[in-house]
Design a protein around this nucleic acid. Structure first.
Length: 819
RNA sequence: GGGCGAGUGGCGGAAUGGUAUACGCGCACGGCUUAGAACCGUGUUCCGAAAGGAUUGGAGGUUCGAGUCCUCUCUCGCCCACCA
């Protein structure tokens, strides 16, 4: 295509100046007000940033450039989340070590971010796999350890032989309901393993409460609240000759309707509740359930199954005998692993009871007295208790309180809050991650490598460096690869006795849980960050990231932050003030980009061919940030054409006083709108405004030089290279001086007096339909407008003799007639 | 099954309760070209020759006035999924 400028030459020239002089520097303690704009850091997994990254980082870059020109001290940092599976996977594929590829990939990513002209302060670049960085990841981990929030627990975890242990969040449900790994789509199964876990449920309440302090959009708040899954209820014992069975319920008030107590197949002392005669049957069932759990237990089974255990327990309120059943729809990992089955008032219990012929009894009736048939359909709402002894006639809320109190007083139960949020499995049987800085003493007990408060010890012994090895591939047996480095594993404890190092490593999430803190003070060797500097920069003002991270990364890092806040390590109780989730960029065919489909967009090719500015402008123009779009070559061509036209418009610029008069309104309106839209992050409509002005300017006889300068400044955040070029040209700046960069200039202002005209045309509606237009003076009074309307020929024609019953005049906007 | 979000031209999309379809793509016609590409100009929601009429997934409602607010309903997307 024909082009009016040599984008390569322009880009190379300005890139060189900008980054050498670090014009996008974020200054600690600057007098200017600060803005911390953050976009999730990428994990290096290819030689160049991919198209999705461009989509993720361009709008935040435009926004931070806008803020910088508006007088803010802006930090828009970038780093590389190099530890973890993506980079390790890439290294395995390339037959190199992760260390080697990380260095190359980080270089390539940095280069591509600069090719795109991102306004990043590169003095703050970080890499999570850099020992200087993960020294502090380890130190922070030890804070959790010292405070009992990082512990080892034997627990069922997702496991697959390709990847080892996976976190709940790394497992997805496949097309047929089978569980697969997020990465690689391998079949996963449940296994019992001793695992490091972070006790995030201890912060469940604070994580819910803290949302109030943020300006997150509601859908993100709700997603987090739902994920945490708070349930208020009670635990109650059903007595037996042996130990009682304790159940968790949110509806203790329905206990008179309990037809059974159901325990999960993995229930700890299950066989205490199985009679001799039912033992065989139960064993078969438990075995089958286990099989299922190892294969595809979670295949969506609306179909419930279970077996009678042959024994009975006593309902603590009614004193009735209650049969004990075993069923795999009851989860071991939630509540107590046992439930009371109330078929009249719970959907699942209803299905189960219908299938096995258990008694269905109504113990709550709707408050409005409507008839319900619990035999057909359970009634799950609150209402009035019936058939419930002394409790009958009282409201559900009342009964819940009274029953819980009684259970507590008499010692057979208690008030209880449960959360769906589980312990965060924090160890991985992989090589490429932060070594967990703990040793096993000879007696098998654990010891932290250092006392985090002992400054000298920290400097001497952290980080526990990940030993270099070419033999880093995951083990067939799922054991940690570091176990194979026998010499490394051997160490000593604090007392000089032989000890063994922990060989498991932290998950990818570790480094990214606190990276936004490190950006504030990235080179600090004595602390993860200086408290005073953190106080200056925190919280993050705007956080842009991936939709998939709403319940994983975003929750994790809030958890870390809140814990650090409790320790007095960070100055704010929340890390992020505001969050926006970005959409995806699809291939031109509307499908997710993938090599197998052959629809992958290569940003390097695009930048080479169209230039960075055209690509940036297209990504802004394509639509709102949080939506998903297919790539469209025609779209970039259009933005490229727009930039080309700037080089034609340039010829019309004049410094004559009379120049550009006809554009005054267009220009001022554009400044006003673009300013407001940038504030609202509506970059797509900003581009429309630029085009509208260009269209008007094309028709105008001349453009005033001041208008042109303002236009270039408005364009600067969007097309930084061309803007810099045009700025230097119009100002006759021949050499480079940082302070003359367009990106450090002040944002244009608009003249409100140029926006309004004295006469305007407004529509006249008759019964809701526009029938005429009238011309009037701005601010005209109702009487004069009515005269205009009544004498308007179109109105007279449309009225066709009918009388005006009512006239509504919205000043300077519209006239509405009712006839 | 639950939660959240969204439905506007052939397409991406725009619209503080106040002239729906801005801006761009595509398309059509014209110009420039030996020709094509590129570029430039004009037009382009639909029906209709026009006058006019219809139109924001569908059905109701509130209002002088609804894409926007309320109720019901359909479809799609994302997240979660037996959490007692």
């Amino acid at each position: 295509m024909e082009t009016k400028y040599d984008h390569k030459q322009i880009e190379n020239k300005w890139k060189e100046h900008w980054y050498r002089d670090n014009i996008y520097e974020a200054v600690d303690f600057s007098e200017k007000p600060k803005k911390y704009i953050l976009a999730e850091l990428p994990y290096p997994s290819g030689p160049y940033l991919h198209a999705g990254h461009m989509m993720r980082y361009t709008v935040p870059d435009v926004y931070s450039r806008y803020l910088r020109m508006n007088g803010y001290n802006v930090m828009y940092p970038m780093g590389w989340d190099a530890f973890g599976l993506p980079t390790e996977g890439y290294a395995l594929k390339m037959g190199k070590t992760p260390q080697e590829v990380t260095e190359d990939l980080a270089k390539g990513y940095k280069q591509s971010a600069q090719d795109f002209g991102y306004g990043i302060d590169w003095n703050r670049e970080i890499t999570t796999s850099d020992p200087k960085y993960y020294k502090w990841t380890q130190w922070l981990f030890l804070k959790f350890f010292e405070n009992g929030l990082a512990v080892q627990e034997k627990m069922p975890v997702w496991w697959c032989k390709e990847l080892g242990v996976l976190a709940e969040e790394e497992v997805l449900t496949g097309k047929n309901g089978e569980k697969i790994s997020e990465r690689g789509s391998y079949a996963v199964e449940r296994k019992m393993f001793k695992q490091w876990v972070l006790k995030i449920p201890e912060y469940a309440e604070k994580l819910i409460d803290g949302l109030k302090e943020t300006d997150f959009p509601d859908y993100i708040k709700t997603a987090q609240i739902n994920w945490i899954g708070k349930s208020i209820g009670a635990e109650v014992d059903f007595k037996s000759e042996d130990n009682p069975i304790r159940v968790f319920t949110t509806r203790i008030d329905t206990i008179y309707g309990a037809s059974a107590v159901i325990i999960s197949p993995e229930y700890a002392d299950l066989y205490n509740f199985v009679s001799e005669e039912h033992r065989g049957e139960v064993e078969t069932y438990v075995k089958a359930a286990k099989q299922k759990s190892e294969m595809e237990r979670t295949t969506i089974q609306k179909d419930k199954s279970g077996v009678f255990a042959g024994t009975y327990v006593l309902n603590p309120f009614s004193g009735e005998k209650c049969p004990v059943w075993v069923a795999d729809f009851v989860l071991t990992t939630y509540g107590t692993g046992a439930i009371m089955c109330v078929p009249g008032h719970d959907q699942r219990d209803h299905e189960f009871s219908v299938k096995y012929g258990l008694e269905i009894r109504q113990v709550v009736k709707p408050i409005d007295g409507e008839n319900t048939d619990v035999l057909k359909e359970p009634f799950t709402g609150y209402g009035i208790s019936i058939n419930s002894g002394d409790y009958s006639g009282k409201t559900s809320e009342q009964v819940i309180k009274e029953m819980t109190d009684k259970a507590e007083k008499e010692g057979f139960g208690k008030f209880k809050i449960n959360y769906k949020l589980r312990d965060w499995v924090f160890s991985r049987q992989r090589y490429w991650g932060e070594p967990i800085p703990v040793v096993y003493r000879q007696d098998g007990t654990l010891e932290a490598v250092v006392d985090t408060k002992n400054v000298q010890e920290v400097q001497e012994k952290l980080p526990v460096e990940l030993p270099y090895t070419k033999d880093y591939a995951p083990s067939e047996n799922g054991r940690a690869p570091l176990e194979r480095l026998v010499d490394w594993v051997q160490t000593t404890d604090k007392n000089g006795n032989p000890a063994k190092r922990e060989t498991e490593t932290m998950p990818t999430w570790a480094g990214s849980s606190w990276y936004y803190l490190r950006y504030c003070d990235p080179k600090n060797e004595n602390a993860f960050a200086d408290p005073e500097i953190l106080k200056y920069w925190l919280p993050v003002d705007k956080y842009f990231g991936d939709g998939g991270h709403t319940t994983a990364h975003l929750l994790y890092s809030r958890f870390w932050h809140k814990f650090f806040y409790d320790l007095g390590l960070v100055p704010t109780s929340e890390p992020y003030k505001w969050r926006m989730t970005g959409g995806l960029l699809l291939g031109a065919d509307g499908q997710k980009m993938s090599k197998s489909r052959g629809n992958v967009i290569d940003p390097k090719e695009l930048v080479d061919y169209f230039g960075a500015d055209a690509c940036r402008l297209y990504l802004c123009f394509i639509g709102p940030y949080d939506e998903t779009y297919p790539w469209d070559d025609h779209g970039v061509k259009a933005t490229k054409r727009f930039i080309d036209n700037l080089f034609l418009l340039k010829e019309k610029v004049s410094s004559e006083v009379s120049a550009g008069l006809e554009l005054e309104k267009d220009y001022n309106l554009m400044v006003k709108k673009v300013t407001e839209m940038c504030e609202d992050l509506k970059m797509n409509t900003c581009v429309s405004e630029f085009m509208i002005f260009a269209n008007a300017a094309k028709k105008a006889s001349s453009i005033n030089i001041e208008q042109w300068k303002g236009y270039i400044k408005l364009l600067a955040p969007f097309i930084p290279f061309v803007a810099e070029e045009l700025w230097h040209e119009i100002n006759n700046l021949t050499g480079w001086d940082k302070k003359n960069s367009v990106h450090l200039q002040e944002w244009p202002k608009f003249d409100a007096s140029k926006l309004t005209e004295n006469t305007l045309t407004i529509p006249v509606q008759i019964n809701g339909k526009v029938r005429a237009e009238i011309e009037l003076d701005r601010g005209a009074d109702e009487q004069s407008v009515e005269n205009l309307v009544r004498n308007n020929s179109d109105v007279i024609k449309s009225l066709d003799g009918r009388q005006i019953k009512k006239l509504i005049y919205v000043k300077d906007k519209i006239v509405s007639l009712v006839v």
